[in-house]
């Protein structure tokens, strides 16, 4: 089954992490992509910071364009990756090893992809 895994962070908690610690954890994410190469599909991307986001929203007469992410949520998406694994337990097992999860405010959402 294919799942999109969405990596999110909470910017207001990022400040609590020392730059050295963050640097060290980020380095390990490269290893993570290497270790899990077999189940990662070509689809995936790391996103520019949320300050670069633009949102187009439903409006009365015409769609409205505005600065910022689409919700007031405290968590922001930092990237996503499509994985191909047998079932949700396999997806959870891989996601649990995502190095950034040792930082507060980090979470990963797992969503199955629609198949016809």
């Amino acid at each position: 089954m294919k799942y999109v895994i969405m990596f999110t962070t909470t910017p207001e908690l990022d400040a609590a992490v020392s730059p050295e610690h963050a640097e060290q954890v980020y380095r390990r994410t490269y290893d993570w992509f290497g270790t899990n190469r077999a189940v990662l599909t070509a689809a995936g991307a790391q996103l520019q910071p949320v300050t670069t986001a633009t949102t187009v929203t439903h409006g009365g007469d015409a769609p409205v364009v505005a600065d910022g992410p689409f919700s007031e949520a405290k968590e922001v998406i930092g990237g996503f990756q499509v994985i191909d694994v047998p079932d949700l337990d396999a997806a959870i097992a891989i996601v649990k090893t995502w190095p950034l999860l040792e930082l507060p405010g980090v979470s990963v959402e797992i969503r199955p992809i629609v198949v016809d």
Binding site: M1, Y3, P86, D87, L88, D89, A91, I110, P112
Partner: peptide, 10 residues
């Protein structure tokens, strides 16, 4: 069904 939760003893 949709999320692929396995029926299995972990």
């Amino acid at each position: 069904g949709a999320a692929g939760i396995p029926l299995r003893i972990p």
